[in-house]
Structures are given as structure tokens and as C-alpha cells.
Design a binder for these strands. Sequence first.
DNA 1: GCCAGATCGTTATTGACAATAGCATTCCTG
DNA 2: CAGGAATGCTATTGTCAATAACGATCTGGC
Lengths: 163, 163
Amino acid sequence: MTDILRHRPGYALRRAANAMMAELARRLGTIDLRIAEASVLLLIDGRTDATASEIGRILDIQRANMVPLLNRLEEAGLIERRPIDGKSQAVLLTGAGRARRHEADAITTAFEEDLMARIAPGHRDHLVPALDALWGEAPQHEDHSHGDHSHEDNSHEDNSHAG
Amino acid sequence: MTDILRHRPGYALRRAANAMMAELARRLGTIDLRIAEASVLLLIDGRTDATASEIGRILDIQRANMVPLLNRLEEAGLIERRPIDGKSQAVLLTGAGRARRHEADAITTAFEEDLMARIAPGHRDHLVPALDALWGEAPQHEDHSHGDHSHEDNSHEDNSHAG
DNA sequence: GCCAGATCGTTATTGACAATAGCATTCCTG
DNA sequence: CAGGAATGCTATTGTCAATAACGATCTGGC
């Protein structure tokens, strides 16, 4: 019945990603973190100079979308914003943030192990390389029909998340 | 830099899926279709008895979310709703819908070929099997804390889309 | 024939994530 | 110092998904 869908790489990819995301979101929910939030915690651990813009660039989260995300983390007492200069501010983990990061790390690591365990050994090692081949190469959006894009990096469409 | 992310299966999966989705959405956008809409067109082609509920079950789209989706398709003149009985209605393609489905099919097929072409031959054949292993088995949500789930299938979290 | 339970389509609301446009401030460089 | 770039932010919109609730209809058991 759904075989028409099952062998379609695009559909399988979408669906697997969704199932994965839902499950990971559920698990991270137990420590009151969203996926994107956990990604940030994992990323800035050990750093004291990561700016919001930089985090956004790495995780492919728009500058604008970083704001409410960081606000939530700050309100939860997990991160702290410390001015670097008048314009930038470093985002760094608080004590509570480090503890939470630890939990998040345990959850995502365990999750990924569960994930890989579901895949037959013969296929297992090929998954990540295959996926990596798919993500980076935005296959030439020709023009975007903008014409200028003077400032603002003209990045692509992806996003963030740990997992 | 992003190597910390790149080797994480969950992150790679999420990111690959997003890049893929964005690209497919862009291509389908040229014929004024969203991914979910194209999925429906591809699914109901050749059928005259597919109900909204059934489509939703197959594509894992909630009944409630089928409504606006089908409304858009109907307003675009691509589908037609025909009463089966007082309660159910068949969703079937109009002439324009069949034509559009054809275009959508060409686009998604070409897209998937491009997708696979990006993957090194050695990995290529393992992707779909690996992904399929990930999606179906919702790894026991223990309980869902509902207690009963008498009616309504207790499906999981995925969704739809061709691609 | 009637009633209970299931199913169908629908409305409405909420959530997560993303994209865009625009703005004030600050930094950097010539 | 001036102009361009970067930073952080507000506000809005869009896509997809989940939930709750409702009226209506179908179905099976009696």
C-alpha cells in the first residue's frame, strides 16, 4: 500500500527525519528542552566567546530566530549573555546550563545509538556518509530572483538541531 | 567546525531532510504545489474512491490537517469532492489535476535522481533501506499516557509528502 | 426500529521551526 | 570622519503538525 512511498528516497528521507525528530523531541522534552535549544547547549559548551550570530551561522538558524531561542534559554537560567563589545555578546553556559547540557548529551547520544541499532549492520555505516552528501550542496539556486543581496549572507535553507 | 555536527546521525538526517525538502519545495513551487499537495495528487491518481480520511491515514496527515490542504487543491481546480454517502466523499483528480500530477511526477522523479546522483555509488543503495528501517518502528512510546485509545488509530508522528 | 459506538469532515487553537523585511546601534576601514 | 558591514532585535508570515471538540452519519447489536 504505502510501498509507492517507501521506495521513494525523498519520501523515505522526509519521513525518517520526521519520525526521528518527533522521538528526539519527546526524549529531550523530559528535560524541558527543544531540539534547537539542545543543539545550542551542545554547541557552546566549553566556549566563552560564541556570539548569537556565530551560533546561528553554524546551526543555520536565522539571526532573527536566534533571539527568542536564546531568550528562552536565558529565562531558564541555562545561558548567560555577556557583552563582548558594544555590539556583540558572548553566549555562555551557566552552571545549570552545563548540567543540562550534560543531560542533553546523554539523551542524544543514547538516542543516536538506538537509531543506528535499528539499521541492519550492512547498511549502517553508509547512512551518515550518504546523508552528508545530500546536505551541503545546495544545487545552484540559479538566481533567487533577488538581483542584489548586497549584505546579509545568502545562505541556503537548512537549519539546526542536534540529535 | 561543524564536524561535531556532521558525524551525528540525527543531525545529519535532520539537515539532509531539510535541505532536500527546501529544494523539492522550490521545484514544486514552479508548478504552484506544496510538497504535501503533490503527495496527494500522486497518491489519488487513478482512483475514484479515496476518501480524505484514507489519504490522511496513508500519508500520515491528521484528518484535521487534510481539510485546508484539500480546500486549496479544490480551489485550484485540481481535485473534486464527490459524495460517496452522506458522511464520506471521494477525492478525485480533475482534468487539470491529472495534468498537474503529471508535472509533479516529472519533477519529483527528476529530483530523486538528482538526489541519488549526489551520493557516492558505494553508499547509494544503502540509503533507502537504512531510512526505511528508521521510520516505521516508533520505538514504543510506552503509553502515551492516554490509557485507552479506543478508536482513532494510535499512529505515530510522521507525516506525508512525496519527494 | 433504536441506540451505542465508531467514523467522517470540519472548525479552531496551539506549537515548532523557518523566512523576510526593517531598524537602531556599533564596529571597522579607508 | 564617512560609509559599509555586522549585530541584535521586532514583527510578521508561512509551512507543517498536533489536539480538542463538534455535528452528522454510518454500522452493528438488540
